[in-house]
């Protein structure tokens, strides 16, 4: 009797261990193929995404009512400011339309092919990474809208990140400020090229030779070399340059062009041949 009990207990323990090992295998093996359509992950993403969508809609409607009330109080003053701003923009627009016309003529002369804009999808951010370890966001568009892993994500201000995983209606995006992210960049002023890496809060511009003249507030844009991001999209401005005695490269810190804390909507470029992301999400 006692032996039977002991055997039963052993069997139960064995079953628990096997189940656990199976779970851990399911959980850890995809480390090497994230984004390859892990069904378990997609299901979890859909379940949590559904809740996130509802919660975001609820919170935004509550904050929307409050913000409308606050906005009404300063609307007259703001209106005057905006009118003045609009006048200035009109003047700038006239100046720029002249420049654009000149540019068009020059392009024609050089027989340059105009780049066609990629089709895109606008998505709303419904969730952010809960941990302080990673910088990812969840958006309310997925594979049904044509989104695939590896596609670039931008806003009007600049680059945001890349699609990491896409289930049918939800996608997760790795932000460019994540330490796992890397984007090829170019300093507009001196044309120095390098790799922009995230450091959690901002960027670090790597592999900039010491002999290059990099200054504070220099604009950095995408170089378009890797073929992921189109060329010329703002990345950020140089916030600090330091030349250490050792090594060939300068240490360049970059302030992102995008305010990641205030992102609400993003644009996903449905580029035809996005590079498939590898396990570490490198761009």
């Amino acid at each position: 009797m006692r032996r039977r009990d002991r055997n039963r207990r052993r069997l139960r323990r064995l079953a628990v261990i096997i189940t656990l090992l199976a779970f851990v295998a399911v959980a850890t093996l995809p480390v090497f193929n994230r984004g390859a359509g892990n069904m378990l992950h997609n299901a979890a993403l859909e379940i949590v995404g559904l809740g996130q969508r509802g919660a975001t809609a609820l919170f935004s409607s509550i904050t929307g009512v409050w913000e409308d009330y606050v906005a009404l109080r300063n609307v007259r003053k703001r209106n005057r400011e905006l009118e003045a701003e609009l006048d200035e923009y009109r003047r700038t627009l006239i100046k720029y339309s002249e420049a654009a016309a000149l540019n068009a003529r020059l392009k024609k002369l050089l027989d340059l092919k105009e780049e066609t804009e990629s089709p895109n999808v606008t998505a709303r951010i419904i969730g952010r990474d809960t941990s302080s370890w990673f910088r990812t966001i969840t958006v309310d568009r997925g594979a049904d809208d044509g989104i695939r892993p590896g596609m670039p994500v931008i806003t009007v201000e600049g680059i945001v990140g890349r699609v990491m995983e896409a289930s049918s209606g939800i996608s997760t995006i790795i932000l460019c400020i994540d330490p796992n992210s890397a984007v090829d960049g170019l300093i507009q002023h001196c044309r120095a090229q390098g790799i922009i890496k995230g450091n959690g809060e901002g960027y670090i511009f790597n592999y900039v030779m010491k002999n290059l003249d990099v200054r504070k507030n220099d604009m950095i844009v995408t170089s378009g070399m890797s073929g992921v991001f189109p060329k010329g999209i703002p990345i950020g401005r140089v916030s600090m340059v330091s030349n250490t005695a050792r090594g060939m490269f300068q240490e360049v810190r970059v302030e992102p062009a995008v305010n990641f804390g205030q992102l609400e909507f993003v644009m996903i470029l449905l580029r035809e041949n996005p590079l498939t992301m590898n396990s570490k999400g490198r761009n």
Binding site: A27, L40, L45, G127, T172, D178, S279
Partner: peptide, 15 residues
């Protein structure tokens, strides 16, 4: 596993 789907870059860390 559930947390893994919405947070992080590498799978399997949280479980």
């Amino acid at each position: 596993l559930l947390l893994d789907a919405t947070s992080g870059v590498n799978n399997g860390i949280y479980p």
